[in-house]
Amino acid sequence: MTDAAAVERARALLAENPVLDGHNDLPWALREKVGYDLERCDIAQDQSARLHTDLARLRAGGVGGQFWSVYVKAEYQGDKAVSATLEQIDCVHNLIARYPDELQLARTADEVEAARAGGRIASLLGAEGGHSINCSLATLRALHQLGVRYMTLTHNDNVPWADSVTDEPAANGLTAFGVEVVREMNRMGMLVDLSHVAPSTMRDALRASRAPVIFSHSSSREVCDHPRNIPDDVLAALAANGGVAMATFVPKFVLPAAVEWTKAAEDALRERGFDPLATSSEAKAVLQAYEEANPKPVATVPTVADHLDHMREVAGVDHIGIGGDYDGVAFTPEGLEDVASYPNLIAELLERGWSEADLGKLTWRNAVRVLRDAEAVARDLQRTEGPSIATIEQLDGAGA
């Protein structure tokens, strides 16, 4: 059990260096639960009965900045994916407008710092999956204009120009158009997010990118051999790239014993007609019944800390961060139940001997630095390069 004094010390540290978290799925949860009707789910009120996130718990957790995921299902393709992404973006903008004393839109590192100085939670947007741009660089640029500051190249399924780690290999990494997507993101100052992608895609993107990359919510594959985690050779390459790997809390990604249990639980969901990612009350009831018959292995705060210890050792303390994936999962680790729980993790790391300076990098400074570095690369590139008008047909062939 984490010492109470360590938790208080963690809270004091977070007052100086708050969490800038890489991934929270609140917008999708609001879409699924209330159809974006913010009157029916007021996050200024206690939402602990149905969400991991509300304003009071963000404050209690020491969150100073959040990348709100504007995820849409990989099954959404073409114009449907683009429209759904725009609806997700609209949700975030509506949240910010509804709670102006608590949330502030941030498009740059300076705006992140300004929000914090003004006592507000810096709110950034991250698109989760290249299907959101429908193979269109103009759509990519439009998302950037609306405030999207990272794009995860794939979600659980391949896109025509990049391989996902949870799909069958097709491109064997990035296609020529995929490389062009990465380079156009660099030119705009949009972070390339490599969570969800195949290791071949990770390596291709690191070779192609002229700016730092991120992993918005991925942990260590060496510590837990789940495909959604990051191999050590990729972690080691982050130092030269300048990027940041943001450890996630998802039990099935961080606890080896949970991997097989989760596969069986997901099969139980499919048998009842639910998507494995479903977070509805009905889906949760199916999972609860399965768990009662088959007690699940329990991830804890030390489980996540083990990942961060290893990631710091391999990537270096300047290249790690936190991406909890709250409101995107049915289960959370014991002690990390919701967005109020970050102090428990920081307290655990303090007890393991992490310095306050290193923890400040983990929670805040590394994420802000990678934003600032990407912006600097974009300024340099825009002096000599205009917007790319390449198409997937031109670069990958007429059959793309």
Rank of each mutant, 00 (worst) to 15 (best):
R50Q: 14
R183H: 08
Y76F: 15
L125V: 01
R40D: 08
G323Y: 13
A44I: 05
I121E: 09
G353L: 12
R203I: 09
F253Q: 01
G130V: 03
I96V: 05
R207H: 15
Q77G: 06
E16I: 04
D267P: 03
R98I: 00
S132E: 09
Y99I: 00
A400L: 14
A208R: 15
G316Y: 14
A5V: 02
A106K: 09
A268L: 09
A398F: 13
L137V: 00
L30E: 05
V159T: 11
H144E: 13
E111D: 03
D318C: 06
R107E: 04
D21G: 00
K252G: 06
A81M: 14
N134Y: 14
A106T: 01
T300V: 02
Q394T: 00
Y342I: 00
S123Q: 10
E111R: 08
I43V: 09
Y99P: 02
N24T: 00
E32S: 06
A114Y: 11
D225P: 00
G360F: 14
L238V: 03
D79V: 10
P199K: 11
A374M: 12
L105D: 01
L30N: 08
R107W: 11
I346L: 13
A400K: 12
A376D: 07
S209E: 04
D327H: 14
D157C: 07
P256N: 07
G321K: 12
K252S: 14
W161S: 02
D37W: 11
H196Q: 10
G64L: 12
L336V: 00
L51K: 14
K33I: 06
T175Y: 11
S219Y: 10
M1E: 11
L146I: 07
A208P: 03
A74E: 15
A74W: 15
D358P: 02
G360E: 07
A142Q: 12
A49L: 13
H217Q: 02
T175N: 06
G335P: 04
A367T: 15
A117G: 07
P251D: 07
G321D: 02
F274V: 01
R149T: 00
V192C: 11
E260H: 13
N186E: 07
E39K: 13
A29S: 03
S200H: 09
E180K: 14
A239C: 04
P227Y: 11
V304S: 03
S136W: 13
G360C: 08
F67W: 10
W28G: 00
R120K: 15
H144C: 14
D327R: 14
C41K: 15
L86F: 15
A390I: 04
V181I: 07
R352T: 01
